[in-house]
Amino acid sequence: MQRNVIDLKVYDSKDFPAYLPKLTSLYEDLFNGGKGFRAKLIWMMSDALSLPPKCEHLLAQTIEFIHNASLLHDDLVDRSHLRRGKTTAWLKYTPEYAVLAGDYLLARVMVNLSSHGNIKLVQYTSEVISDLLEGEWLQDSVVGDFFVSLEQLDRIHNLKTASLFKWCLRAPFIALERYDKDLHGILEEMGTLLGQLFQRSDDLLDYNIRNYESKAILGDLKSGYLNSFGAFACEGLDRQQINHVIRSKDLDAFYNGIGGREVFEQKVKDFDMANEKLIGLYFHHSERLKKYLIPSEEKLITYLNPLTDLLYWRKKTSD
């Protein structure tokens, strides 16, 4: 079944008050540039589970609102100047508007979900928003800390990134009032792994690994943040070596900092190998998931399995 993400249309200016100055243009800038991957994930889940269209739209809108609210706040916290090739909201408008616009999206999420009437969905979404904010708080607390370990970063990413992926997998089942705890346990594990793989792949882009979208190089490092691959590559380096790495203005300087290009490439291989184990775990859980699906829902597995290729290896698949 071919569907275009544009059909989902998560943002409509008519859903927001007309009397709030600049809100509409801020949101149009924000929503027009996005790939809407999380909304696409909701579409896959909805298609496999035969979710009613109204419910599908609600879930897709909810997750994109939460995600984009976090981007508005993130850009201000990080003092980023660009988002999706455009000037960030806090810079183009004001920091106050960026914060309020993010808060407003989260408030709209609560309004929309509570109107829907599924209290467990409201409760779960609130928990996820809470996790997201905790992750953002902790991430800000480690800016400038170049000795942070990969395990510590994983804890932050589990709150900040993985929580939204978990929501995408679990919310459709909750919307259908399917609350089996073993089923949700599996979805939780799969969501955690997807989020971890996505974050690690995103972090590799910073070092120009599988950087097909030509994302800025060493952006995280220059912002004072050692991402997951950076932490992995720098493990075992002494303070002097780390200081050298921190001052890297380009990739060549980074290679020199960690011991040379060959060392860097070996680190990438080792990192990929570690993540292949996570991918293996993901497939293990997707096999377990089959037991909880009725025959008409089993195409969910065919939707979910290729996600590791897409999210980690950045292989393009047809929509």
């Binding site: 902790l138 607390s141 480690v142 800390d145 170049f146 000795f147 942070v148 510590q152």
Partner: peptide, 10 residues
């Protein structure tokens, strides 16, 4: 100390 998770805690 400003983080409950960074290397400064260690």
């Amino acid at each position: 100390l400003r983080s409950s998770i960074g290397s400064d805690l260690l």
